[in-house]
Design a binder for these strands. Structure first.
Lengths: 160, 160
DNA sequence: GGCAGATACATGGACGTCCAGGTATCTTCG
DNA sequence: CGAAGATACCTGGACGTCCATGTATCTGCC
């Protein structure tokens, strides 16, 4: 029983057929996010990480200096600066990152990845690659289609 | 600057090219959800609704008796029962639904939509149809593709 | 040089999600 | 019929997200 197909049928019954597919798209994206989030968090749990914290960690790992102001991380990950503050609080508690004063801008705080942070990031990535990214539940063609369609969506909404 | 394309490039640099597209897919879905959630919540704000509460309201509106046990709503919307309890608390506070004892099962609680609830649901749907579902930011062909691909994903993960 | 506005970050609160634990009720089986 | 297990719900807590607010610092203009 596909609950989204059911909802679409209801939309058509009520004379909203012209926007039923859009409704299905929005609802499907919501559900897909929930599915992926659960899979990813399941894999990351042994590392005491969540996807949000993992993203922060990888962003720092990939950065040239291994450190970055909160503001910049916020922009890169496209979340609110407070979400970064929150993630950094917990990552710092686990010893995976460290806060440093910015050398030239007294307002800014640098977040720097530690050696333990890099090590944890790589171990987590290995499992994530194998268990989630490597088996997304779709054929390679479908995966590429999904990425391309969502790129159009992101472009349309001003992401890039 | 497409942050997901950047991440994919990093994955390829590190020899993880075989799963880079899967990583892009997962990340894209996360971001798309964020985009849609923001649009929907923006439209629903004047009605003092969120998407979660809107979904509960529409589920009840479309049900044959206008009421449903918490457990059934939880299954239909594929969220934890506690999420329904939370949504119902707020909907009840706004007078849009009402809790009733289940006539035959003393454990269960029936959630029933009120007249004000139905009225609000229809008004909200009208704006949502026009502002979000009617302009999802993709061509009709792309929207259908997205729905179909995500249906495959949901099927693979046991949704139906 | 000094003040006004912009910027960076942290704090506190709201919301939705989930899990763990507890209570009440139903169902099943001896 | 009565006890054990299953089921439905609520409460309290954790987490991630956002917003509003406050504080410190920087920048630009007079």
């Amino acid at each position: 029983m596909d609950t989204i197909a059911l909802a679409r049928a209801k939309w058509e019954e009520h004379g909203w057929g012209d926007v039923a597919e859009g409704m299905a798209a929005v609802t499907s994206v919501m559900r897909a996010q929930q599915i992926f989030q659960a899979r990813v968090d399941d894999v990351l749990q042994p590392f005491e990480l969540t996807f949000a914290r993992y993203e922060v960690l990888m962003l720092l790992h990939f950065s040239s200096r291994g450190s970055m102001p909160v503001k910049k991380a916020s922009g890169r990950l496209q979340v609110h600066p407070t979400s970064i503050t929150n993630a950094v609080d917990r990552l710092e508690g686990a010893g995976l990152v460290r806060r440093l004063p910015h050398p030239t801008d007294g307002r800014a705080t640098l977040v720097e990845i530690t050696d333990l942070g890099r090590e944890t990031a790589l171990k987590a990535t290995e499992v994530l690659n194998r268990e989630v990214f490597g088996r997304p539940g779709l054929s390679p063609r479908r995966v590429s289609t999904l990425v391309n369609v969502l790129a159009d969506l992101r472009k349309d909404s001003g992401d890039f």
